[in-house]
Design a binder for these strands. Structure first.
Lengths: 214, 214
DNA sequence: TAGATTGTTAATCGATTAACAATC
DNA sequence: TAGATTGTTAATCGATTAACAATC
């Protein structure tokens, strides 16, 4: 029963996962947290603390079993069984997300895209169909979709969120620069690209230099 | 001389800025931090602390002068005078970034895109030309570009970063899932889309619900 | 004046780092 | 065994929240 898990740790897990998969592909079977820390420029103690939240343990002198650790992170994040998502907004950002291979590695498959623009509806993105936005609600219900990605302009975001929630979607990944009002049982994560750029600008402006880790 | 500025505060500034610009456009002239906090679902004390790092002050009973506060945040972040950036990678993500209007509001203009793919080189993205990657170094020097955006596959990222640095670029916004090795005077910010999705997945997996603020 | 709001200092909370015993 | 590594407890650090005096 983890009463609470440090959010920064959760954010770092995908970075570890990526490295671990590379090492596993390279044929390695175990890895020490000192090796992980070295490769990622982080503190070994922090790596150990982060990995501990997944419940996977290592063995002194040997390290962690790669396969076990990968499976542990995946199941902790719910990335082990693939889930389907609906994407609202078939603009450039939407297309980028459909083509973003790392999402599939995170167990997320974009099943369908939606847009209000009839021109976009005529197209497909890769294998993905673009349907009229008004069909989102009914299709989400019928296909039991629970994850929605919002990649529409800010002005349309709240409306799209409501359509998604009506359709039974309970988790929203929001790329629109717009705060969404949602009922408490719905989980929203804001992608918020500008906050990252703000950090870069600020460092540049004040000539501050890189920080280890993140 | 701010010895150190809380990074979370820097991350929140663009969110405030967006709200403030909306209010200014709506013709308002002042705003209280309680009003900001209310609109964004945050704590008023935190908002005041965050705004204080920009050096802009408010007046009791009245609040902050909107124009002054907007200018203060912009100049703190260096978003007041527009700077030009080079984009490496003219795939979907690159195209999305070129079309991302909020970047222009953040004082960043993408001057040119680069790609190794001759097919992409024949295209333009909006008004932006796509040039062969090998021309990046010389052009960056000639045009005095200091900001680079990496939107290429992970395997190519390190090489691109080195080209950029050779060309005199000192700030890199990295969208590739790859840790970059750079000299200490170069500032790197990783966009790291998956960490946001990890938080969403984790909340969903453990049925945790929204957190005020961020 | 009264009351809302700012700015600042102190208290709390949480995350990171350090220290160290247990273990293979 | 010796030494590297884990897991855990304690110490430090930094950010958030609370309290309150100053002010318009």
């Amino acid at each position: 029963m983890p009463t609470s898990v440090p959010l920064p740790s959760v954010r770092r897990l995908p970075v570890y996962l990526d490295l671990l998969r590379q090492r596993a592909t390279a044929g390695e079977e175990t890895i020490a947290c000192t090796a992980i820390a070295g490769a990622l420029g982080q503190d070994p103690t922090q790596v150990r603390k982060d990995l501990a939240i997944t419940g996977v343990g290592g063995r002194p002198k040997i390290g962690y079993d790669l396969a076990e650790l990968i499976a542990g992170i995946e199941s902790f994040l719910g990335w082990n069984d693939c889930s389907q998502a609906f994407l609202a907004g078939a603009g450039n950002l939407g297309r980028a997300l459909v083509g973003y291979a790392a999402l599939r590695d995170a167990g997320l498959e974009i099943a369908c895209a939606f847009d209000t623009d009839p021109i976009k509806q005529a197209e497909t993105i890769g294998q993905i169909q673009v349907l009229p936005l008004r069909r989102l609600r009914t299709l989400a219900r019928r296909m039991h979709i629970h994850v929605g990605i919002i990649a529409v302009p800010a002005a349309a975001a709240q409306n799209v969120a409501e359509l998604m929630i009506d359709g039974g979607i309970t988790a929203i990944w929001n790329f629109a620069p717009q705060r969404l009002e949602v009922p408490p049982e719905v989980v929203v994560e804001d992608a918020d690209m500008l906050s990252g750029f703000a950090v870069l600008s600020h460092r540049l402006q004040h000539r501050l230099h890189p920080v280890a880790g993140r």
